[in-house]
Write a protein that binds this DNA or RNA. Structure first.
Lengths: 246, 246
DNA sequence: TCTCTTTTTATTGTATACAAACGTGAATCC
DNA sequence: GGATTCACGTTTGTATACAATAAAAAGAGA
């Protein structure tokens, strides 16, 4: 009765988190992180085998993850048909504009729904949003600003609005779209931080609209926030230049 | 530009144009077609091996296609983590409502952009839209109405608006979202047809708004069209009952 | 007969092997 | 010397084999 006390899960590097089950998800997140943090710069040719080696998995989950990433817009299939090669999606001003516009509309729909929630739920949300926005406000005035913290707060602000009222489909859409804005964020964070105050004010207007139960205003408010975000980003890109859009 | 839409491929045989290259795409379309046409009814347990056998491919492309279909909402991964089982996504009234609302907003953004196009381009589009809508009008009055034809016309109408001005991201989003409405369409087509006239009128308003270059009105118009569509659909579901949402 | 344990089975996740396709470079022929 | 062809290497697409696991079935003990 040789009960294998410890199933020695050899090699594969990652012994701690959850190698059992689906490692494709892990690979997906790892690669996405690489792309978002810029370790895989835009335009890079992706070769499955290399990535697989580097991550310590086989090609199969890497391949799956890549398809996933493609569907979410992180990588592009260049050659069509027989010999499709994948590259990391480039970051361009046009793309940023379109992306932000889309997110604005998705969240706009969420904000609209949220503004129609029952007052009780709305109040609870409002408290949370105010709290988050005050955090942003404080950071905006602070001398040493931590981009990560700011990003987290801002992202939470928007996610909170969505989670309050969006259905599964809309939520899924949002969850798959928003992280892509993170790429632009990180790349140009330093320059965007200066205009944090403006964003805080826009947030206040959103809070007001939701609080008063004005769907139209809430939708418009969030759309404006993203529109202006794109605007700010565009200015920065113009001065710094597009990075890695060769 | 003709929309190929349905290429009734029943035999995966040898003589078909491109078994070479990516058969995953073929499998994807085949399975999606099965789901959309109801050959795989909602709630069905999907087993990769069976599907692979039935389609004459190996599990690998089937697996890839299934992940794709999952991302697009046709199938759901039920069991989480280790043993995720896939089922055909059910059709429910709530889902329809959410889906239609999302499409309405996506297309709303497209319509807004389209309404801001240069007059020359706009006029060309307007002619095409009018033509399509007149086709619908004729069909609405006809005695024997072909659901397929109606669906194609309606879908073309909406796609045309998007393709006129949407960027790659928005277009991709639309292309992956709209087909899901087809499931509801086909399931309840017979009952929806009666209200075709109303939809034609809504289309006319959209055309008017685009023609006059009124972004707000165009966006609202399309949103209304989808909202009312969901409304009509809901009524039908209420009387016929949800099919396969067990 | 009921319940607890053990074995079997069904099905997915992962790794690997193989084949096709495209690009590249060298060698040969005119 | 230039062009053409052929062979090879790199990389993806596909098939299959293997491992792991959850569910089901069978069996044993009370």
């Amino acid at each position: 009765m040789a009960t294998p006390l410890v199933t020695t899960r050899t090699s594969k590097g990652k012994q701690d988190p959850a190698p059992r089950g689906n490692s494709m998800n892990l690979v997906f997140h790892e690669i996405r992180e690489m792309i978002v943090r810029g370790k895989l710069s835009p335009g890079t040719w992706i070769i499955e085998a290399d990535l697989a080696d580097r991550l310590g998995y086989s090609r199969t989950p890497v391949r799956g993850a890549l398809h996933w990433l493609q569907r979410e817009g992180y990588v592009m299939a260049s050659g069509n048909g027989t010999k499709s090669r994948m590259t990391v999606a480039p970051l361009t001003k046009e793309d940023a504009q379109e992306l932000y516009s889309i997110i604005g509309h998705i969240e706009g729909l969420g904000a609209r729904l949220t503004a129609q929630l029952a007052p009780a739920k709305r109040n609870k949300l409002i408290r949370r949003l105010t709290e988050l926005n005050e955090g942003l406000f404080d950071l905006a005035k602070a001398r040493r600003r931590d981009p990560n913290r700011i990003f987290d707060l801002d992202m939470s602000f928007h996610s909170e609005i969505m989670e309050a009222s969006a259905g599964p489909r809309l939520l899924e859409l949002h969850k798959s779209t928003q992280p892509q804005a993170e790429r632009y964020w990180r790349l140009y964070a330093s320059a965007i931080l200066d205009e944090l105050g403006t964003s805080v004010e826009e947030h206040n207007e959103i809070i007001r609209a939701i609080s008063n139960g004005e769907p139209d205003a809430a939708e418009k408010g969030i759309q404006l926030n993203w529109e202006n975000g794109a605007e700010r980003l565009s200015r920065v890109i113009d001065t710094i230049g597009e990075r890695g859009s060769w």
